[in-house]
Lab assay of single mutants.
Amino acid sequence: ARYHDEKKIIKDILKDKGFVVEVNTTFEDFVAIISSTKRSTTLDAGNIKLAFNSL
């Protein structure tokens, strides 16, 4: 259940930042955007990776 909650937070962060994940978006770029907000401090690193892979 935590993964789904965190995935929603991640999607909200991406929307707030106006960031669109494209086919050529690197995981490093994705993490940089997510990490640039205070909301990301509680996110699990594994869940961030899973969310990236699912987009």
Rank of each mutant, 00 (worst) to 15 (best):
T42A: 10
D5C: 12
A1E: 12
K15I: 07
T37W: 05
T37V: 11
T25E: 03
L43F: 07
R2M: 08
K8M: 13
Y3E: 04
N47R: 02
D44N: 06
K11F: 11
I9E: 06
S54V: 02
K17Y: 09
S36T: 11
F30G: 02
I34E: 00
I34S: 04
I34A: 02
I9T: 03
A45R: 12
K7T: 09
I48Q: 00
T26D: 07
D5H: 13
V31I: 08
D12W: 03
I34V: 10
K15A: 12
A51T: 12
K49T: 10
G18A: 06
K17L: 08
K49M: 08
I13Y: 01
E28C: 08
S36Y: 07
D5N: 11
D5L: 14
S54E: 15
S40G: 15
F19R: 06
I34R: 03
V23I: 11
D12H: 08
L50Y: 14
T25P: 01
K17F: 06
F19S: 13
I9G: 01
T26N: 09
L50I: 05
I48M: 10
R39I: 12
A1H: 15
K8S: 09
I9F: 05
D16R: 08
L50H: 12
K7C: 14
T25R: 03
F30C: 00
S36N: 15
V31L: 13
A32R: 13
D12S: 14
G46H: 10
F30L: 02
F30D: 06
E22M: 03
V23F: 11
L50M: 14
G46P: 01
K38P: 13
L50F: 04
G46M: 10
G18I: 00
S35Y: 08
I48S: 02
G46D: 14
N24T: 11
S36D: 11
T37E: 13
A32P: 00
D29L: 00
I34W: 04
I13L: 07
T37A: 11
R39Q: 14
D29F: 02
A32T: 12
K49G: 04
I33E: 06
K38M: 07
V31W: 11
K15Q: 09
S36E: 08
V23T: 15
A51Q: 06
I33L: 10
L43Q: 01
K38D: 10
A1V: 08
N53H: 13
I48C: 05
V23K: 15
K15V: 07
F27Q: 00
D16F: 07
A1S: 13
T26G: 03
L43E: 00
E28Q: 07
S35N: 15
G18C: 09
H4L: 15
F30T: 06
G18P: 03
T37C: 15
A51S: 04
T37L: 00
S40W: 09
S36K: 07
D12E: 15
F19D: 06
D44R: 00
H4Q: 13
K38S: 12
R2C: 04
F52S: 11
N53T: 15
T41Y: 09
R39W: 10
S40M: 10
K38F: 06
K38I: 07
V21Y: 12
K8Q: 13
N47W: 02
R39D: 06
D29M: 04
I34Q: 03
G18N: 14
A51E: 03
K38L: 08
H4E: 14
D5I: 15
N24E: 11
T25L: 01
K17V: 07
T25N: 02
I48N: 11
T41K: 12
G46V: 10
A32M: 06
D12M: 06
G46C: 11
S54G: 04
I13K: 02
G46S: 12
K17N: 07
T25I: 02
L14D: 04
D44T: 08
V21I: 10
K7A: 14
D29P: 04
I10K: 01
K8P: 05
S40V: 07
K15F: 06
L14R: 00
I33K: 03
F52L: 11
K38H: 10
I34G: 01
H4R: 10
I10G: 02
V21C: 15
R39E: 13
K49I: 07
A32W: 00
I48G: 02
D29R: 02
D5G: 08
V31S: 11
V21M: 03
H4A: 11
I9R: 04
N24V: 04
T41Q: 14
I48T: 04
A45W: 12
K15C: 05
A51W: 01
D12Q: 13
S35P: 01
H4K: 14
K11C: 06
K7W: 14
R2T: 11
I48V: 12
H4G: 08
A1L: 12
E22N: 15
G46F: 07
K11A: 13
N24M: 01
K17G: 06
E28S: 07
Y3L: 04
I13E: 05
T26P: 10
I34N: 07
V31F: 09
T37D: 15
A45I: 12
A32D: 09
A51V: 13
K49F: 03
V21T: 07
K8L: 06
S35M: 10
L50A: 14
T41W: 02
S36A: 08
G18S: 05
I13W: 05
G18Y: 00
K11L: 15
D29V: 03
L43V: 01
T41N: 15
K7E: 14
S54L: 06
D16L: 06
H4M: 15
D16Y: 05
G18Q: 07
N24C: 03
I48R: 01
I13C: 00
I10P: 11
I10E: 00
E22G: 15
A1R: 13
V23Y: 14
D5S: 14
T37N: 13
S54K: 07
N24A: 08
L55K: 02
T25D: 04
L14W: 01
T41H: 12
T25V: 01
D44Q: 06
D5Q: 15
L50E: 13
D44S: 09
L50D: 11
I48K: 05
L50G: 04
S40P: 13
L55V: 03
D5R: 14
A32F: 05
N47Q: 05
A45M: 14
E28V: 01
K38V: 08
V21P: 05
S40R: 06
Y3I: 08
I10R: 00
L14H: 03
A32E: 14
D29Y: 04
T25H: 05
D44H: 09
K15S: 10
F27G: 01
V21S: 03
D16N: 08
K11G: 10
D16Q: 12
T41M: 05
K15Y: 07
V23P: 15
I9M: 08
K17P: 00
Y3P: 00
V21Q: 01
L55G: 05
T42N: 09
D5A: 15
R2G: 06
K8V: 11
K17H: 06
I13H: 01
D44W: 03
D16C: 04
D12R: 10
K49L: 09
E22K: 13
T41I: 07
N47M: 06
A1D: 15
D5Y: 14
V21F: 09
D29G: 03
D5K: 15
N47S: 08
G18V: 00
F30Q: 09
F19V: 03
I9V: 07
T25K: 03
K17D: 00
I13V: 05
D44V: 02
R2L: 05
R2Q: 09
R2K: 10
G18R: 06
D12P: 00
G46E: 12
F30K: 10
T41S: 14
V23C: 13
K17Q: 08
F19A: 06
A51F: 15
S35T: 10
Y3G: 02
D29C: 02
Y3H: 01
K49R: 14
D16G: 03
L14E: 00
E28A: 10
T37R: 03
F27W: 09
D44Y: 04
I13S: 00
L55E: 05
V31C: 14
T37Y: 12
F19L: 05
R2N: 14
F19I: 07
T26Q: 13
S35C: 12
K49E: 11
K15H: 09
D5F: 14
A45G: 04
V21G: 03
V31Y: 10
A1I: 13
A45P: 15
R2A: 02
E22L: 03
A32I: 04
N24Y: 03
R2I: 05
A1P: 04
T37I: 04
S36P: 04
V31Q: 15
A45Q: 13
E22T: 15
K15P: 01
S40E: 09
F19E: 08
D29A: 07
E22A: 08
K11N: 15
K7L: 15
T25F: 00
N47T: 06
T42M: 12
A1G: 11
T42E: 14
T25Y: 02
R2H: 08
I9H: 06
A45S: 12
I33W: 02
T26E: 09
K7R: 13
A51M: 08
S35V: 01
I33M: 10
L43A: 02
F27I: 04
N47E: 03
D5W: 11
S35A: 12
T26W: 00
R39F: 09
K49A: 13
D12V: 00
I13D: 01
L43M: 08
V31P: 02
K15M: 09
R39C: 09
T26H: 04
L43P: 08
N47P: 01
E28D: 11
L14G: 01
S35D: 10
D16M: 08
T25Q: 00
S54T: 08
K7M: 15
F27S: 10
Y3T: 01
A32N: 13
T25G: 02
K15L: 07
T26C: 06
N47L: 00
V23E: 15
F27P: 08
K49H: 09
K49D: 02
F30H: 00
E22Y: 01
S36V: 01
K49Y: 05
A32Y: 05
T26L: 07
D44K: 12
L50K: 14
S40F: 10
Y3C: 02
A1F: 08
H4S: 12
G18W: 02
L14P: 00
A32Q: 13
H4D: 14
R2V: 02
T42L: 10
T41D: 13
V21K: 02
G46T: 12
T42S: 12
I13M: 05
D12T: 07
R39A: 07
I34F: 03
G18T: 03
D12Y: 08
T42D: 15
K8R: 11
